[in-house]
Simulated assay, not measured.
Amino acid sequence: MANDNAQTIVQQYHRAWTSGDIDTAMDLVADDIACRAPGGDLHGKEAYRGFIGGFAPMLTGIGDIAEFVDGDRVALFYYPQTAATSTTPAAEFFTIEDGKIAQSVLIFDRPSYGPPQQA
Rank of each mutant, 00 (worst) to 15 (best):
G53R: 04
T85M: 00
G54S: 05
Y113F: 15
A83P: 12
T82I: 06
A84I: 09
F68M: 15
G39M: 00
Q103C: 12
A25N: 01
P116S: 09
G53M: 04
R73T: 15
Y79V: 14
P80G: 02
V105D: 12
S19K: 07
I101Q: 00
G61L: 07
T85R: 01
Y48W: 02
P80C: 05
G39K: 00
T87W: 06
F68G: 14
S104T: 14
V105M: 09
A34N: 13
D72G: 01
T88Y: 03
D41Q: 07
P115Y: 08
D23R: 01
F108L: 11
S19D: 13
D31P: 10
G44K: 00
D23E: 12
Y113D: 10
I65P: 09
L76H: 10
A25W: 00
L28I: 12
T88E: 11
V105T: 13
E92D: 15
I96E: 02
I107F: 09
G54L: 02
V74N: 03
L28C: 12
G50E: 00
D23L: 00
L76D: 13
G20T: 08
E67H: 11
G20H: 06
D70G: 11
Y113A: 08
R49Q: 04
I107E: 11
S86Q: 14
A66L: 13
K45A: 15
I101F: 01
G114P: 06
F77N: 14
A84V: 08
I96W: 01
S86D: 15
I101G: 02
E67M: 12
Q103H: 15
D32Y: 08
L28Y: 07
G40N: 05
A47N: 12
